[in-house]
Structure formats: structure tokens, C-alpha cells
Design a protein around this nucleic acid. Structure first.
Lengths: 347, 347
DNA sequence: ATGAAAGCGCTAACAA
DNA sequence: TTGTTAGCGCTTTCAT
């Protein structure tokens, strides 16, 4: 258990000043070839590595990004988390994780804890947040980006897929597919993703001269989605929708389970199901769920770019609202319009 | 954008010394009721919160735990991560995440980065690690616990399920179920989980007078598991196993897909499939996978307890090997022995 | 119980 | 290019 090696020890071994050591490990500093060599040699010998915390204290930059995430059982998030973390790591930043799930109400506590770590930025991934959480960051001077959430709040950068457009696409697809009784199972009403998806869906339905045949709320929650599906489909055949758009895949898979295994209906012969996200299980042959893909790679890239922009130029960087277009991935869970063919799943 | 509030500012407003402020925010310190009140009032007014980084510098305790994780597409890990993070948060610790996946070879780099943050402890979650990674931590004086990995290395605490016992259970269940041609699809050979599961499985098979009928390697990887399944099952009926134990659910689900949807065989009528982990999709009715449950809650609790033990008493705490027993969750993907009935999935 | 003072390990002026 | 110096915000003796 070797003790911590400090820059001073390296300096002494190398026969230079402590600041010389610091400079060697500071990217844009001026050191002579000779000094650098001596220092690196001594550092290697001692196994020295700069203390990030000490560096953070004096420089004011911790190179830590706080990531607040709520649900890891919606499989869109593990994927996003992995990509976010990787992208940040590549830039020399690291992710301090805060689970807001169990913490339930005290998301405020979580924010305090985040800020205590002097994080350089915060990513709020689909957390139910009152705008004051964002304000807390802002008045603490910490850049924030909302991931997979949009428009809730002014003056903050958000990155999401084009939920309104996605909703539209689903409606158009279902209408073209010849469905007559089109229904919707909603996510949690407080989520902008939910609201936008529903709004786009309804708008396109109306434009096509269709009314929404049925509507239930699943709150982005598996069990609630099951219950919603039962209320919607465990009815007389002529009251039953022939197509349903479910606000995300996490719920859509559960809805398919109820439709097929509890109620014994066929998908898509009796009812077409379309989801949103394109999580990995949606592509599994046991589901083959037609869905709107959220392009996680792009969303992550935009999020990281925006965050660094705000970190780099805290005052000039304008908040922006990024909406990334996502394709409809046509699989077998919904009846196809004439001339359409199901796609292969690529990444 | 309010500037950072320091303890000094609070002290001045409260009319006390800076150390007094520090004491108020230090759990076991001695402060008079009166002083505490004044300080808390001033702190609240200014919105003061102690700087965790500064505290870490002087105290030597960062209250950060480094968590190295490789795969988030094996859905056992998001669950574990969430629970780990929550358990740590409850103790006032936080998780700095390091994805070892993309980083491929340079897991060593990752370790350096972790240690740079002066983490109080490290949890290695199922990472392919040469023992020198553990040694790196140990010689840096940082406690380590291996999560979901066992026995690889001496002198380090590991927490895993009883993989050997789990493998046994599966073999016994399959034998009792009357299967005659029992096969195994292995995970990555470097993983102790894989080796133990296979060893237990083979041991019980041998004891029951059975030989392993077929063996393929899937490396814990979806695509490789698919290929393994094809090699194993796309053969003449009399060459085909009537049961297969797959080293984890992540692969088992893919194997079921191949068996049912590519090859058109029935599960369990033509072939029984058993997995390991009991990830959420294993319980979905589209799969109903019989599997060994890894008790994530217990594993997490043991991991956190062991870690804190090592953090608290770095020298006296003995490394231990924890193996947590996991039940066989009997669902419908494997033929039942006489008198057995499938279970409901509970958590 | 409280204040003064000494650092934790480092970066960033400032001289030289 | 280099060394000297002054902190970053805090905890922790040590007196009082």
C-alpha cells in the first residue's frame, strides 16, 4: 500500500521545482525538453499521477459531469448512459451518477449533492423536474442540458428526438395501413416527450379525418401500461381498437404481452401496435415491434456538444432546443400500408 | 449566477470564526447551540453548502466510489448499477462511472483515471481484468470489491452468486425432467462466473450418470450466442439436444429466438432452455425463461457492506469470498419434472 | 466551546 | 524557461 505520491516528491527526485512538475502535467505549459524528461522519469519511477481533486480546487474545473437519471428499467436509458459516459470520457470528463428514482420526492436533495461536488455541468436525463431544479443549477453557474426532454422550460438547452414529428409519422402510417379505430396509450402527462408524441399523433390523425378511438394512460410504467391495455382491449370486439400507438417501447412491449398472451388476440391481425424508442427488445423476433427510433448516438453527441459549449463560454452560449428526427422502423407488429415492406433492423 | 459561497463568508455574516462554520457542518464536532444557530441561519441566507472537493483534499476522504462496468446491454447490470448507486447514496457516497466497454484494451487507463479522483473505493463489476488491476488499487491503498466475479484472484473480496451451486441446480432439474441429450452454451471462458456455472453443471450431470451431449461457446455475446445456437440445433433431429443450459439470460433469450423463430422448433416441447440471472425479460410471457435468479439486492448489500468494512478498517478487514445462493425460477421454457409446477415471478 | 494557524496537493501569476 | 509565492475552501491541531 504505497502512500500517495505528490508533485513535490517528484520534484525533489527530479531536482526541479514543484511547479515544474505541475507544468509537465499541464497540457499547454512551457517546459524545456530536458526538464520534461527528468520529470517524467522521476514521475514514472514513483508512480506519480496528479491529484484531480487538488487540481479541481485551484482551477475551478472538476472535469466531473453530474448525470441525473431516473429509470434504468426503461432500456433506452442504459444505452444512453453508456454512450453519454463514453463520449464524456473521451473528452477527459467523467460521470458522477445520481439516481433520482428511489429518491422519489427529494430530487432537490439530489441537486444539492450534485452541486456539492463542484461539477462542471449537469445532464438531466428524463427526470420529472420542476423548473426550479434547472434554476438551481443556473444560479449556481453550472451549465445544464436536458436529455430526452424538451421545451418544459425556457432558457435551458434541451435535446430530444422530434417527438411531435414522430407522433405524426405513426398516425400517418396507421392511417395508410387502413386502420379504422386508432387508439393511444399515453405516458406520464408531466413529460414533454409524452405530450409532444400525443400532440403530433393527434394532429396527423385529425388531418387525415380520423378521431382518436380510445385513450388510456400508462404513465411510462409497465404495470400501469398493462392495466391500461386491459381496459382498452378487454372489451367487445366492435369496441376494440384495431391499432394502438403506445408512448414508449417500455410500455408497448407490456401492452403486446397483454394483448397476445392474456387476451389471446393476434398482433397485427387483430390489432396493430406501434411503440417509440426502438429499444433493443423491440427488435427481438418475439416482439418485432414497429416503432420510432430515437437516435441515441445523435442525441448523445448533441448533448455533449451543447454542454461543452456552455462550459466553454458560459455567457455567450445560447440555449437551444434540439429535436432529432427519428425514422419509423417498420417491423411486424403493425399491419403494413400497401407497398410497404418491413425493414431489417440496423444500427 | 451567484458566485460560490465559502465558509468564510458565512463566518463573517454570522460573526464567528471560519472554523466554527466548519464545525457546524462536521457531524461529530463540538459547537454550542447558539453558535450553531447563528451559523445555520447565515448559511441558509447565503445558500452555503460545503465544498466536497475541498473537504476531500484535507480529509483524504472523497466519498466517491469508482464503479467500473463493462456491459449495460446485459440487463442484469443496469439493475445492479441502479441498486448499487442507491445503496451508496444512502450512505452519503456517490458513484463515479467508468465504462470499460468501448475502452476495450485500455482498462489500465481507466484504472489510472479512477485513482486520479482519489476514490475511497472501487467496485469492479464483471470486467475482464487481469489481477494487476486489483493490485494497482491495492498498492494505491484503495479498497476493491469484485462484483459478480469470484475467486479469480487471492486477497481480494468478491461477491457473486453461488454459480457452482446454480449450475448444479440446473443440471439436476434437467435430469429430473427426463432429458436425455443435455447441452451447454458457455459464456466467455475468462469469466469465473462462466467457469463456475459450467463446473457445477458438469459435476451434477456426471453424478447423475449423464454426459454432456453438446457444447458451444457464446462468450456472453448475443451474436455469438446465436451462432452457437445454430451450430448446436441446426442439425439432424437425432443429433439435436433436447435441453440446453445457457450461461446467462442475455444469451439464453437470443438462443430461444434462434430455436423458435429461425429453426421453427418448439420450446419446451422440442428443446428445453434454461438461463442464468433472471433479468426482467426472462419473465416476460413471450419468453417465460426458466432461470437461476441472481439476487441483486443481496449481492449489492454484501458488496456495499464489504466495501465499507475495508474503507473503515483498511488493515484488519479480511478479504472474503461471498457466494449468494440463488433459486431456480421455474417457468415454461423447460419441461418440468413430475410433480413440479411453474412458479409465479415475484421480486 | 471557540479562534488562530497550519496545511491538504495543486495551479497560476509574478519575477528572475 | 524556471523558481518563488500566494492561494483554492476546507479540516484539524493547538491554544485559549
Amino acid at each position: 500500500m504505497a502512500d500517495k505520491v505528490t508533485s513535490l516528491q517528484v520534484a525533489q527526485l527530479a531536482g526541479v521545482s514543484q511547479s515544474a512538475v505541475s507544468r509537465v502535467f499541464t497540457p499547454g505549459a512551457s517546459v524545456s525538453k530536458k526538464t520534461e524528461e527528468k520529470v517524467r522519469k522521476a514521475a514514472a519511477e514513483l508512480g506519480y499521477r496528479p491529484n484531480v481533486l487538488a487540481r479541481a480546487m485551484v482551477s475551478g474545473k472538476s472535469r466531473i459531469i453530474g448525470l441525473v437519471v431516473a429509470y434504468l428499467d426503461n432500456y433506452f436509458y442504459p444505452e444512453a448512459l453508456e454512450k453519454l459516459s463514453n463520449a464524456l470520457q473521451e473528452q477527459g470528463y467523467h460521470v458522477l451518477i445520481f439516481m433520482a428514482s428511489r429518491t422519489a420526492g427529494n430530487i432537490d436533495t439530489v441537486m444539492d449533492e450534485i452541486l456539492d461536488y463542484q461539477v462542471d455541468g449537469v445532464i438531466l436525463a428524463s427526470v420529472a423536474m420542476s423548473s426550479d431544479i434547472v434554476m438551481r443549477c443556473q444560479q449556481a453557474g453550472v451549465p445544464v442540458v436536458l436529455f430526452n426532454r424538451s421545451q418544459d422550460i425556457e432558457g435551458v438547452t434541451t435535446v430530444a428526438s422530434d417527438n411531435f414529428g414522430g407522433g405524426r409519422k405513426v398516425a400517418e402510417f396507421l392511417v395508410q395501413g387502413g386502420h379504422q379505430r386508432i387508439a393511444y396509450i399515453a405516458g406520464w402527462q408531466g413529460a414533454s416527450t409524452q405530450r409532444d408524441r400525443e400532440a403530433g399523433f393527434r394532429a396527423a390523425l385529425t388531418e387525415a379525418g380520423h378521431a382518436l378511438f380510445a385513450h388510456q394512460v400508462g404513465d411510462f410504467h409497465t404495470e400501469k401500461a398493462r392495466a391500461a391495455a386491459r381496459r382498452m382491449f378487454d372489451v367487445a370486439p366492435d369496441q376494440r381498437p384495431d391499432a394502438v400507438f403506445v408512448a414508449n417501447d417500455h410500455m408497448a412491449l407490456a401492452v403486446m404481452d397483454v394483448i397476445r398472451f392474456e387476451l389471446g388476440l393476434r398482433v397485427p391481425e387483430d390489432v396493430s401496435v406501434v411503440g417509440y424508442d426502438d429499444v433493443p427488445p423491440a427488435g427481438w423476433p418475439a416482439y418485432n415491434l414497429t416503432t420510432i427510433r430515437q437516435r441515441a448516438n445523435l442525441m448523445v453527441a448533441e448533448t455533449v456538444a451543447a454542454l461543452f459549449e456552455h462550459i466553454g463560454t458560459p455567457d455567450t452560449a445560447e440555449p437551444r432546443k434540439v429535436a432529432i428526427d427519428g425514422p419509423l422502423v417498420v417491423r411486424a407488429s403493425a399491419r403494413l400500408p400497401k407497398g410497404w415492406t418491413p425493414q431489417r433492423t440496423e444500427t
